[in-house]
């Protein structure tokens, strides 16, 4: 073997090693986000199930990503009678109806910046589903890119997924939040509502009926409105930008985090950013302000001092 051939072989071997290593590195990173390009190339993959979770009714029906099925956030992901998330049995039934197996890759997307698709991702994670990902940019970017929509209603053979007990680590209930406020548990609270709601200037955003009869926020909570997580086109900011954003506020993953909003759904977007993208220890307080602001005997911070007038 000549010296040159030996040298070329060595280079090739090195290159191959590097490639393999980088591929492994990619596999090791959590795959929780897909691009619209990736999704468009994988529309036909029988192991990929696309689920739309939109805030507004009638959006899915008038055109959705080809092959997608529709989950309705206010009936499918919740217990419509008691205030709670969907039960394991009902969730399993829904997923099987959508042809989901244990090894299916579920891609969630929706309107309004993936608000309720992210809430869906939290429910999937809460129930320990293995591979659930969000479409980066959601429905808005898919449409803005000029990608195809379909009105076909896809039907699938019943799936065989098994849904077990919910993982309490991802969910914060009121007593846990209270113990954070009282300093018994060390954790950061993040309020993702608008500054006006956080400061107690208003009880709820304009046009919204569900009121809490106290204004303000949970004592000690940081205010990081959800919109700071995303770019103008609806995609998530880069990991570096997100680390700088939250790190600047002292949220660096060194202690657990609890996110909340008004009714408990939008905060799932910030939960997704911190837990899924940055890998921090994060729980969602789905009771949120509509529980806290109506609870008797819990501490409240209200910088604006607005007094509820009984209307």
């Amino acid at each position: 073997m000549s010296r040159i051939k030996w040298f070329v072989s060595l280079i090739l071997l090195l290159a191959l090693t590097l490639l393999t290593a980088s591929a492994f590195a990619q596999d090791a990173a959590p795959e929780v986000l897909v691009t619209a390009d990736w999704l468009e190339q994988n529309l036909e993959d029988p192991n990929v199930r696309i689920i739309e979770v939109s805030v507004n009714p009638g959006v899915f029906e008038r055109g959705h990503i080809p092959g997608a099925v529709n989950f309705v956030w206010h009936t499918d992901f919740v217990n419509p009678l008691e205030r709670d998330v969907v039960s394991a049995e009902r969730f399993q039934e829904l997923l099987r109806g959508a042809g989901v197996n244990d090894d299916t890759t579920v891609i969630l997307y929706g309107d309004s910046n993936n608000w309720f698709a992210a809430w869906g991702a939290w429910i999937f994670n809460l129930y320990g589903f293995e591979d659930v990902r969000l479409l980066d940019g959601g429905r808005v970017k898919w449409e803005a890119d000029g990608r195809p929509l379909s009105t076909d209603s896809a039907t699938f053979e019943a799936g065989s997924v098994t849904i077990g007990e919910a993982d309490d680590e991802l969910r914060a209930l009121k007593p846990e939040v209270l113990s954070i406020v009282e300093g018994e548990t060390l954790a950061s609270l993040i309020d993702i509502r608008s500054p006006a709601e956080y400061n107690g200037e208003i009880f709820a955003p304009e046009g919204v009926q569900e009121l809490a009869i106290r204004a303000g926020h949970i004592p000690g909570a940081l205010n990081v409105p959800w919109g700071q997580n995303v770019n103008e086109d609806g995609t998530f900011k880069s990991l570096e930008e997100l680390q700088v954003l939250y790190g600047g506020l002292g949220v660096d993953g060194s202690q657990p985090i609890v996110t909340y909003c008004r009714i408990g759904e939008r905060a799932a977007l910030t939960w997704f950013v911190l837990h899924e993208l940055l890998g921090y220890d994060v729980a969602l307080y789905d009771g949120s302000w509509t529980e806290w602001g109506n609870s008797v005997g819990v501490p409240v911070e209200n910088p604006a001092g607005t007094v509820w007038g009984g209307q």
Partner: peptide, 16 residues
């Protein structure tokens, strides 16, 4: 309707 709500017996109403 056939596209919006394939199963008319599902207990849901078609949107809007």
């Amino acid at each position: 309707f056939g596209a919006f709500l394939p199963n008319s017996f599902s207990g849901r109403l078609p949107p809007d």
